[in-house]
């Protein structure tokens, strides 16, 4: 696991920062240099909505390396309030409870760790809305 690679993404992952096209208003996550909709290069950093709905989901049962200890876990395609879509784990929720259209909100969790002595990567996950 690479420390600089993790560090570089920290603020985007911790605070759910994406970008918005100043020309056409499209919102993207993750950030990008060129608008996918209109081709404009004039994009600005924006805080994304922390609430959204589950568009679809799966339950990962045979995970990649570094994710084994968390399995099984739900991964969902989520549409946020501002229209941006994000892929995220959904936690605090049983596989039987998650459903299409479910309202979810961002939370802050451990994502993976580099063994017992390496760094711990934190970031966003989503959960059913608490209140």
């Amino acid at each position: 696991m690479s420390v600089p690679r993790y560090w570089r993404e920290i603020k985007y992952r911790y605070r759910l920062l994406g970008c918005m096209c100043k020309e056409c208003g499209s919102v993207f996550f993750p950030r990008r240099h060129i608008c996918l909709k209109c081709g404009s290069r004039d994009l600005e950093e924006v805080k994304l909505s922390e609430r959204g709905r589950v568009v679809s989901y799966t339950v990962v049962r045979n995970p990649p390396k570094e994710y084994e200890k968390y399995a099984p876990y739900i991964v969902a395609l989520i549409e946020l309030g501002d229209g941006a879509r994000i892929l995220s784990q959904v936690v605090d929720c049983e596989p039987e409870e998650v459903h299409l259209g479910m309202e979810v909100e961002a939370t802050f969790r451990r994502v993976r760790e580099d063994g017992p002595s390496g760094i711990i990567e934190y970031g966003y996950k989503f959960r059913p809305v608490i209140s």
Partner: peptide, 30 residues
């Protein structure tokens, strides 16, 4: 599984712990 998911964005797709099969599963459910 970690190698296969290298076909996807490492920082925002692989990062979620999803597998390639998991991404297909998301499409299948939809």
């Amino acid at each position: 599984a970690s190698t296969l998911i290298m076909s996807e964005d490492q920082e925002y797709t692989a990062y979620t712990g999803v597998t390639n099969i998991g991404l297909s599963a998301i499409l299948k459910r939809l």
